[in-house]
Each structure stands twice: as structure tokens, then as C-alpha cells.
Nucleic acid binder design. Structure first.
Lengths: 215, 215
DNA sequence: TATGTATACATTGTATACAATAAAAGGCGG
DNA sequence: CCGCCTTTTATTGTATACAATGTATACATA
């Protein structure tokens, strides 16, 4: 089923997560058809997947956009703090040489772009780093769970901008995690990843507060 | 979209998880149509959801049944050990009086059926107990994640039978968790839930070993 | 005015026809 | 006999017609 690569699904999801479609709006299958120029079947399938993901809610009379709230972000981070390290641990225990090489290259690139202060590239590489760890964990369950979360917070992060200060620290943390993984120290890799996610979350909280003061 | 209540989806999922459909079998949309007496549209939607869940894999030439492996069970328990307690913690912090009442009734019933040695009812009530905690956690993200896991291990548990010994202990653990929750002690509720999941997992490992010796 | 009921309408659910695709089979020249 | 190209065939992807559903509205009646 290529439908998981369903273009409508991906576009609509991105549009919801990025706020391009306002949450006050009420969708319908037909509206989705018109918006993306397809017939009802692919539109329906996109909506079905989004509903399973909890991003929309079908009420029988139109489709409500639910999206991801600040509370959801809090919850996702609470969960990630507890399980993201599991992926690092698994990778440390069973990761292949090529996996570790790929991760080490990602970190090297990150260090380069930190020096260049290229926020865009750094965001991309952050995704790359975590995605490599997920895949290399060898756990279908973790990959599914963490990838979904990552997708959902990714767009949020773009909105909350990324400070140069946090970027630098984040990369330094990645480097530590990489070292723990490549030396096969699963215990340490898990602990360091917990710290990493926690720091990222605390940074988000700080930014949120700053934003609140603005408004 | 009532399609999340899609009968084909639920039946096919149950048939895959219970092993009623063998993993060696290769499905196709048409086969699903014939099996459940529906047209391609609902069959497709069922397969789509199952693929997102990772239970089947579309190869372009037929649909492979992936199901849940022992390794997946291991991973799910590793994750549950780390986050199931989060739901208990949230419920302890924010659960309504009626939630706590419902949970306390579930535990009372469990104690009754332990004395009656009714394994069937005990399995049902175990599901009830955990589902109440999930909902009362007030976290859409946790509900989605944990419910999916619970569904996936539920059928597995049925196959591995439930020993009377473990049932009794499990209910005792539930009672402790309930007490922590109703006294608002989130910290303790999380810790006790960790222990509970860990004990359940260790029991599964023991049963698995016993099974292996048989074969 | 309040309430019950019929009806119209918007929306979703299902079936099916047709198009696109990609793997397997078969044939042809080397 | 082997490799390449064509043809076939199984399967999925998309569009659309029609059925079912449920909600709002208007109207009749108490």
C-alpha cells in the first residue's frame, strides 16, 4: 500500500501541524478533495490515517481539526524522556558498524554547521541524527512510536525558532551520546539521551514563557 | 469517520493477532473482500490502518502479514515499564472522583473473581483497569500509545494462558496502585506501576521458557 | 409557545469501473 | 543456453455513482 506515502496524507498533515489550516476550520472529505485536487478515495484515506493519529476528529457532521496542543507537546516530551534513551541503548548494544559510521558523520556535519550558524541545516541534521538512532535500534515498535512523535514536534520546533545557544549544546550532547553508543555503553547512552531530551524540553518551556510574555 | 470502528479492520486485526490468519499467508485486497464479504473500499481502509500499525506490509505484489513477534512483545514491555506509570502519575494528579471510583470498583470486582478463580473475567477486568487509568490520565498521546500496545499484547496473553498465581499477585498490585492514585501520590503510583509491568513481563518470560522446553 | 414529525440537505459509507503499475511469463535473437 | 524485450496478468490506485445516515429546518398540531 503506497498509500502510506499518500501525498494528500503528507500534505494535509504538514498543513495541520504547521498551522496552515486553522483549527477553527471544519473540513469535509469534499473540501480535502478540492484543496489537493484529488477524488474522494485518497482524500478519505488521508483523513482516516490522520484520525488514527489523533490529528483530526470526524464528528459525522464535518471533520474537526484537532492538531497538537502545548499539552500534547508536554506529554510527548514526558514520554520521550523515558523511552528515547531506549533506542540509544539498543543501538549501543546491537548497532552495526555502518549505523555508527552514519551517526558519527551526522554529528560531524552538525559540528560544521554549528560553526556556520546554519539553523536550517541543523534542524535537518537533528532529524537525521534521531532517525538513525531509531532505525538502528532494530525495534519496529520504537521506530513507529518515536518517529510519529518526532514528526509531531518537528513542526512545532520550527515555529518556536531554534536559538544558536541551544543548537551548540544540543550538538555537544549528540556527540556524547554517539561516544557512549560507539563504545557499546548502553546504560550510559540511555542516561545521556534522557538528559538530552530533558534539556530540549526545558528549552522549549523557556521559549514558551518568553512567547507568553510577548502576547 | 466511523471507519475507525471499521468492522473489517477490527476483525482482521483480531485474526492476525490471534494467529487465525497464518503469517505465511499472503493477503490481497480481494482476499480480504472475500473473507469478510465487503467491497474493496472498506477492505483497503482496513489494510491501510493495519499497515500504519505495522501489522501488515504491502509489497506491491500482495500484502505480507507481519503481526507481533516475541521481540515486539519484549520491546513493548520495555516501553510500557517506562511509560505506563506516567498514566498512573497523571491520574493521581488530576483524576476525577468518578474515575477513581470506577477504578476502585474494577479492583473490587477483580478481588471477587480471584476468589472465584475466573480467568476469563480477570482478563477482561485487567483490560478495564488499565483502560480506566489511560483515559483518566487525560493525555491523548498516552491513551493512543498505550491502548495500541495493550491491544497488541492482549491476544498474546490469551495464548500464553494466565496462571492463577500471577492473577492473584496482579490484582494485589492493582490494589496498591489504586491506593497510591486515590491518595494523590503520583510519584508512588508511577513506581508501583513500573513494578507491576515488570512483574507481568517476568511472568511472560517464565511462561515463554516453559513453552520452549515443551517444543 | 412548545413539541412532535416529516422532509430536505449535507455528509459519509460502499460498491464498482477503469487506469496505472509492476512483477512474472513467454518468446526471440544471439 | 542465456539474456533481453514484449506481453500477459495480478494487483493496487483513483474516480465516481449510488446508498445510508444523521442533522437541521420547517411545518403542523396540541
Amino acid at each position: 500500500m503506497k498509500t502510506l506515502e499518500n501525498e494528500v496524507y503528507q500534505k494535509l498533515e504538514a498543513d495541520i501541524l504547521s498551522g496552515k489550516i486553522d483549527k477553527s476550520e471544519t473540513l469535509s472529505e469534499i473540501k480535502v478533495c478540492e484543496r489537493y485536487g484529488v477524488s474522494r478515495t485518497p482524500a478519505r484515506e488521508a483523513l482516516l490515517l490522520l484520525e488514527k493519529e489523533g490529528l483530526v476528529l470526524s464528528t459525522g457532521r464535518g471533520i474537526k481539526i484537532v492538531g497538537i496542543s502545548d499539552k500534547d507537546i508536554d506529554d510527548i516530551y514526558a514520554i520521550r524522556m523515558r523511552i528515547e534513551g531506549l533506542a540509544s541503548r539498543f543501538m549501543a548494544q546491537k548497532g552495526s558498524v555502518s549505523d555508527i559510521k552514519a551517526l558519527s558523520e551526522a554529528v560531524a556535519l552538525q559540528e560544521f554547521y554549528v560553526s556556520k550558524n546554519d539553523a536550517q541545516k541543523l534542524r535537518e541534521l537533528d532529524t537525521t541524527f534521531h532517525e538513525i538512532v531509531y532505525r538502528a535500534s532494530g525495534s519496529k515498535i520504537l521506530i513507529g512510536t518515536l518517529s510519529t512523535f518526532h514528526k509531531q514536534i518537528c513542526v512545532y520546533r520550527e515555529r518556536s525558532l531554534v536559538s544558536a545557544e541551544r543548537s551548540g549544546k544540543s550538538v555537544a550532547e549528540h556527540k556524547q551520546i554517539l561516544q557512549a553508543i560507539s563504545s557499546g555503553n548502553g546504560e550510559l547512552a540511555e542516561k545521556l539521551t534522557y538528559d538530552h531530551v530533558k534539556n530540549a524540553y526545558e528549552h522549549i518551556l523557556k521559549m514558551r514563557k518568553a512567547n507568553d510574555r510577548e502576547n
